[in-house]
Design a protein around this nucleic acid. Sequence first.
DNA 1: GAAGATTGAATCTTCAATCTTG
DNA 2: CAAGATTGAAGATTCAATCTTC
Lengths: 162, 162
Amino acid sequence: MIDVAMIAGSTIPAVPSTRGLDPSEEAAWRGFLKVHSALLRELDAELADHHRLSLSSYEVLVRLSEAPQRKLRMSDLAQSVAISPSGLTRMVDRLAGQGLVERDRCPGDARGTFAVLTDRGQERLREASATHLDGVRRLFLEQLSDEDQRRLSAFWERLLPV
Amino acid sequence: MIDVAMIAGSTIPAVPSTRGLDPSEEAAWRGFLKVHSALLRELDAELADHHRLSLSSYEVLVRLSEAPQRKLRMSDLAQSVAISPSGLTRMVDRLAGQGLVERDRCPGDARGTFAVLTDRGQERLREASATHLDGVRRLFLEQLSDEDQRRLSAFWERLLPV
DNA sequence: GAAGATTGAATCTTCAATCTTG
DNA sequence: CAAGATTGAAGATTCAATCTTC
C-alpha cells in the first residue's frame, strides 16, 4: 500500500499524526485526553453554575484549607496548583475581591506574602465540595473497581516524575 | 476527634475538600489531574520550542490530516477538538496566517466553510508529529505494560459517555 | 545579585450579538 | 426563524520587566 496522498495534486505523504501508534496505544492515549477534557469541562460547569467558582479557584481554596493555619506563601501555593506566579497573583486578587481569601505579610521575610483562607472562603469551599465530590464520584470513581483504582494509582505514581 | 478548626478563632469546620474521598480514591483522582497537567505542559512546551505550534493547533492539524480530502467543516472540526466555534474561527485565522490551513466554500451550502490542510500544513504536521509522538511514548506509553494499556483503554471507553 | 511578588503587554478562549444563507 | 460562521468585548493565563527585600 502506498502511503502517499493523491489529494489536490499533493505529493506530500498522507501521514496521520498518530502514525506509529498502534490502535491499542492510540486508544490508551486519546482516551486519556478525551476523558480528561470531557470530565473537567463538566466539573467546571457544575462548580460555575452552582457556586460561581472555577475549578482552578476551587483548587486554590482546597490547598489553603489543607494547609496549617489555612495559609500558604504565594510561591508555594503557585507551585502546588501548577500555575505561574503572575497567574496566582491575579487569581488571589479575584478571590480576595469575593472575600474568600486575604493577604498577610510573612513575619521574618518581608518579601513574602501569605494567602489566607477566610471563614467565608472555608464556608464557600464546604458548599462547593459537596457538588464537586459528588461529580468526581459520579463521573469517575464509580466506574472503577477497587482493583482498577489500585492499578490506576500505581500508574500515576510511576508517571509522576514527569 | 473533633473536626473543627480552632484557627484564628474560627468556628467553621476544618473540611478538607476531599473529605469523603478515602486515600485510595484520592490517589486515583488527584493522580489523574496531576499527571495530565504535567504531561500536557511538557508536550506543549516541546511543540512550541521545536515547531512553533501549540498542542491545540497541532490537534486541529491532526484532525484535518485524517479527514477525507484533508478538509472538514468548521462546525465539525470544532466539535471534534472540543473548542468553541469562535475559538476555532480564531485558531484557523492564525493557522491560515502561517499558511498551514486554507478556507474553502462548501458547495451546496453557502453557509458552511471548510478548513483545508495545505501541503505546507501537512509537512509541518509531519515534522511536529515526530517530536510529539516521541514525547507521548517517552512520557506515557513506555510506562504501560500491554495489560495496563488494555485496562486503561477499557476504562476510558466506560467513561466516555460523560 | 537573587528571591518573592506584582504589573503591563500579549495571547488564547469564551459568551453574546450579528450577519448570511437555508 | 434556525444553522453556520464570524466579530466585539471580556476573562484568564503567561512572559518579560519591575520593585522591594534578602
